[in-house]
Write a protein that binds this DNA or RNA. Structure first.
Lengths: 218, 218
DNA sequence: CGGAATCCTCTTCGATACTG
DNA sequence: CAGTATCGAAGAGGATTCCG
């Protein structure tokens, strides 16, 4: 059960819904698409099974998350964000945008995952250089996700793209180095830390929109 | 000490900074201006002294809050948001905006304070009707605060205005009823639940911008 | 294998009392 | 007024077990 503040205040109400430890990170994971319990465990290193189960139960009760059983032959249960959670996305976006400026260097014990950085970039990057309607496939440390450009926004999703304009391959550290200005696009490409396929120009536009964000060392 | 997630992720980083219980509510209180420890205790019903002291210490260490001793003869210590906390404001705004839509009716044990509702309104209300550069003084349940309109945004502050265009007096419940569409401007005025002084037309514009927001019963 | 339930230890919270 | 000290209660974290 979520703890309450007993204050008739919008901020307090929001915190009662998603303010507990791990809750917003669960939402972060679900932002990229439906996930099974085990996937969430894997995507949230450090969480314990009982806490995750508890948070999912809370979110489900609040109507933010729905538990659905996939049709056969998969027949496994997945959790996904409901339509009521659209407002939650803007909270997550604000957190990611501010957190991006406070990110700094990875600490010794930090787990590094490409998706997390992509999420931060997606909300932070102003994408005037990226052409609306394009889709990019990202291969980060072997994992595949794709990003759609819609109305000047970058929307990340898990898995491969149906039809991508370009494929960009790099590792999570390179992505973070780009984002925070520790590496520039030309340097990354010439050093072979980033490789592209398909429309190389478009890929370069995407990388440029990713690089040198506020909070970086520029 | 704030607990950490050990994830190199912007959202996780933000949560390490302000994700603990009460932390964002402390920031909410400081948003309206500098406050003494005792003021904060009064503005955060339910918090205990040790938790508040701990949160202030954390925020100070993160550089979000500064502790300052007022010049004589006041000579009391106040806490205030630093310039580094500007990014934090957008997080608070996102929370308030979403929380406003989730607010609903006050629960039996809810404390009701006008400032909290004003804060929610300030970030939620689209203020096309309110004239830029105007200032309003609000008297809510005897407490005085003022709102400045700048670039289409409403900025609330504690205390009286230096030079206000209008004064609006009401109680917190009326304000919430207006915001959530349980009451309209005409009804509130004619029932005497709201009284205005100064530029009545401007006051009406302000009230209109406050009324019938998303999440209401309209 | 997926996920829920149980048990145990540790930290944090919350409330009251106390001190400079 | 501005906190610190103390202590019981609650929650987090980890491991293990049980159920489908």
């Amino acid at each position: 059960m979520s703890r309450i503040y007993d204050q008739y205040c919008p901020v307090a109400r929001a915190l009662e819904l998603v303010g507990e430890r791990w809750t917003l990170l669960v939402a972060r994971e679900l932002l990229l698409g439906p996930r099974r319990f085990t996937d969430l465990m894997a995507g949230l290193p450090g969480v314990s099974a009982n806490v995750l189960a508890s948070r999912l139960k809370d979110l489900e009760q609040e109507g933010m998350v729905a538990r659905r059983t996939l049709p056969p032959p998969a027949a496994s249960a997945v959790y996904e964000l409901t339509d009521h959670a659209v407002g939650l996305v803007s909270v997550l976006a604000a957190m990611a945008e501010w957190g991006m400026t406070m990110l700094g260097e990875p600490r010794p014990d930090d787990e590094i995952r490409g998706e997390w950085i992509v999420l931060g970039l997606a909300v932070t990057a102003h994408a005037p250089d990226v052409i609306d309607g394009t889709t990019y496939e990202l291969h980060i440390d072997g994992k595949v996700l794709h990003v759609q450009v819609r109305d000047g926004n970058l929307q990340p999703h898990q898995g491969p793209a149906d039809d991508s304009d370009a494929v960009v391959s790099l590792d999570a550290t390179t992505l973070a180095d780009l984002a925070l200005g520790r590496l520039d696009v030309d340097g990354a490409l010439s050093a072979g830390r980033v490789t592209t396929e398909g429309d190389d120009g478009a890929a370069r536009h995407l990388l440029t929109s990713f690089s040198g964000l506020p909070g970086g060392v520029t």
